[in-house]
């Protein structure tokens, strides 16, 4: 799935680091990696609604400001979308719980990850456990 990450939400993008499995891991968290000397939770994409886990190793880790690492399969590039290119996610889209809208880049609709909604979702998933 191609996604947009706002650069303002990113701490940095780092080379893939081994992810340690967390015994009895909470839903939504695959494990932890060591980042700047501390444990950093790594997202389990497959646990998110409307998302499937993809096999294979990530090419990079996007470290979000709220201290969460997102494994990335490929880095496509950067865009600066016009303000009128944005629209709400489709009603009934399961991904709505963690998206901040969809950007129409040419013919391609690119969903934007909303870190705040994503963190809130992860906390809900923990509570449901």
């Amino acid at each position: 799935m191609d996604l947009l990450l706002a650069t303002s939400d990113l701490r940095e993008v780092v080379a893939p680091t081994p992810v340690s499995d967390l015994p009895g891991r909470p839903r939504g968290i695959q494990g932890v990696m060591i980042y700047q000397g501390e444990f950093l939770p790594v997202l389990a994409w497959g646990d998110l609604p409307g998302c499937e886990a993809t096999p294979g190793l990530p090419v990079a880790m996007a470290v979000l400001r709220p201290r969460l690492a997102l494994p990335i399969e490929r880095l496509i590039g950067m865009i600066s979308p016009a303000s009128d290119a944005w629209q709400e996610a489709d009603e009934g889209d399961a991904r709505d719980a963690w998206l901040g809208g969809v950007c129409q880049a040419g013919d391609l609709p690119l969903p934007l990850v909303d870190p705040d909604r994503l963190i809130a979702l992860l906390q809900r998933l923990r509570g449901d456990r």
């Binding site: 015994p23 009895g24 939770p41 201290r67 906390q123 923990r126």
Partner: peptide, 12 residues
């Protein structure tokens, strides 16, 4: 080292 809240796991 403590685990961040998002990664809290029961018993660890």
């Amino acid at each position: 080292r403590s685990l961040p809240e998002l990664a809290h796991s029961a018993g660890i």
